[in-house]
Write a protein that binds this DNA or RNA. Structure first.
Lengths: 319, 319
DNA sequence: CTGTTAGCGCCTTCAT
DNA sequence: ATGAAGGCGCTAACAG
């Protein structure tokens, strides 16, 4: 059925126009009369023409893949569920564009890494995560215009709203000594939840009890222990990650603290297993896949680079 | 510092050889005298030469990305942790090869989808998951030699060994009415665990109680309910997925069944949250990342296409 | 072992 | 609006 692959020249010949005209029509850009446009389109259809993605990108000088660069100093960060979910979402979202995704960790001091990225002519664009305030504003010139960020300053969840709703709920339920397990301080996205938390505790004249975590359940365990030691009268622990909250729950259970009777607990992300925990975790949603897809498209210039995605609270048993 | 990008021609000129010779040296293939090899390498180093991945692949006729094609009929399968972990692992493993990863779902009846893949000239290779017995042996000719599979017949975890160890442990602990929540029957990888289970129950003259699941915790909940209804004297439930096992635990807790006193529970995968469950889940390891990376390299012809990765039991509180 | 000569398949000035 | 021609950067077949 299918003989040799039809190329642009074949389409042009069949449509009775030059390859240049066929190219203009099929690549969407450039002028063409209605007549030749129709002829080219018809010929392409009949021949089942499909452009060669690699040739196209070589000629255009654009690359064929997007690198998801995750800035972190932990070697195993690429195993983090946030990273894997985002990577997969981008890999699915960019499939129709004939663009593949690569995943790479870059260090906290990443100037050299960014230069490497800028030097790679195979790259179509870069998606950055784990950045801090300064990074985005001093990208290598080769990356400008083809870089998007996930997190503060880029495509991000409205964590202030999500965490805010959870904290408000805790307050309304009578909790007055609420501790927060926040994200690492070097991460730009850690700031908004801390800000709403601080605002609330100030306004309500509650003590401010912030412990830094890193979104892992390990850190949740140690953070809970620290909170119990340092502020034994704490009656609620809010975390900015479900994994962390599950670690918190574990430590509380081991310590014989009843949840939510003695201490209420909230997470963030609404991972599938949040509802399967005992007791079921109260949390707020985090549309990671949508955010990642939006960032990937933004990096390609197909979407707005900066967008805030809603987070809504999900109340289950722990708060 | 960096003027215009150095190309192969620049390297050749500087080394005093022809572009062809430079190409032979730098692309690793083809003969070259020690002298010219050294000269080319030196020139390349001085010029900071880096090959243009896209041009290289166009000339070679190989594609620039690998598609991870997941065969399943559930629309949300691409959100499955197994899929996201595998995708990310491939995206990281193929980064050094200048190859990106795309993620795509294909239907159970996927002949047409496979033809699409074979027709895409931008593709370097395909990694397949969710296949059944027949699929691998009747791939489109265009995909032969550049396809690898994750699961039975490709790169896979030794689930027979892992599940076997868990079952043996249950038996040794005195469990005599063990139920199995298996994978879907259309999936090739579902077979080995069922085989070891059946072998054990036969040999030990225990009842055979198999319920089909789909690796989700939802299915774990309904499966546990079905088991409780149908075989109320069951004293152990083994699942082939941790998520499923967590669902089982939930249903058992709701039903007032004590774990492990009344019913022992085991999972499979050893996901990070397995240890954070209450009670902590006994399970067996599943090196998804290694498997996915191996499959991706195999698809590119850089590794053996078929390999079995070890699974070791992890005993915690539920069994 | 090496250099020359064609491509790979498409895009894009540049005239017309 | 269109066609001709050159280029994107590298590789592979073919002589030598």
């Amino acid at each position: 059925m299918r003989e040799i692959r039809a190329g642009l020249a074949d389409v042009a010949r069949r449509a009775g126009v030059s390859p240049a005209t066929a190219s203009r029509v099929l690549s969407g850009s450039g002028p063409a009369s209605a007549a030749s446009r129709a002829a080219v389109l018809a010929a392409a259809g009949q021949l089942g023409y499909q452009p060669h993605p690699v040739a196209r990108r070589l000629a255009r000088g654009t690359g064929t893949r997007v690198v998801f660069a995750v800035r972190d100093d932990r070697a195993d960060i690429l195993l983090d569920p946030f990273v894997t979910r985002a990577t997969a979402a981008m890999a699915a979202a960019l499939d129709p564009y004939d663009i593949g995704v690569s995943l790479r960790r870059i260090g906290l001091e990443c100037a050299a890494d960014l230069e490497d990225l800028a030097a790679d002519r195979g790259l179509a664009a870069v998606v950055l995560a784990g950045h801090d305030r300064a990074l985005l504003s001093c990208l290598p010139s080769g990356l400008r215009g083809r870089t998007a960020a996930i997190g503060a300053g880029g495509a991000d969840v409205d964590s202030a709203a999500g965490v805010g709703a959870l904290l408000t709920h805790l307050y309304a339920a009578g909790r007055r000594r609420i501790a927060l397990v926040a994200g690492p301080s070097w991460l730009a996205s850690s700031a908004p939840p801390v800000a709403v938390y601080t605002e609330l505790t100030r306004a309500a004249e509650m003590p401010t009890r912030v412990v830094r975590g890193d979104f892992t359940s390990d850190k949740g365990r140690t953070a809970a222990r620290a909170i119990l030691d340092r502020w034994p009268d704490t009656d609620a622990i809010a975390s900015v990650s479900d994994a962390t909250a599950l670690g918190v729950l574990q430590t509380l259970a081991d310590a014989g603290v009843r949840v939510p009777d003695d201490v209420a607990v909230t997470g963030f992300d609404d991972i599938p297993l949040a509802g399967a925990a005992h007791p079921a975790l109260s949390t707020a949603t985090h549309p990671v896949e949508q955010i990642a897809a939006a960032a990937a498209r933004a990096a390609l210039g197909e979407a707005a680079p900066i967008a805030l995605f809603p987070s809504t609270p999900v109340f289950r048993a722990t708060a």
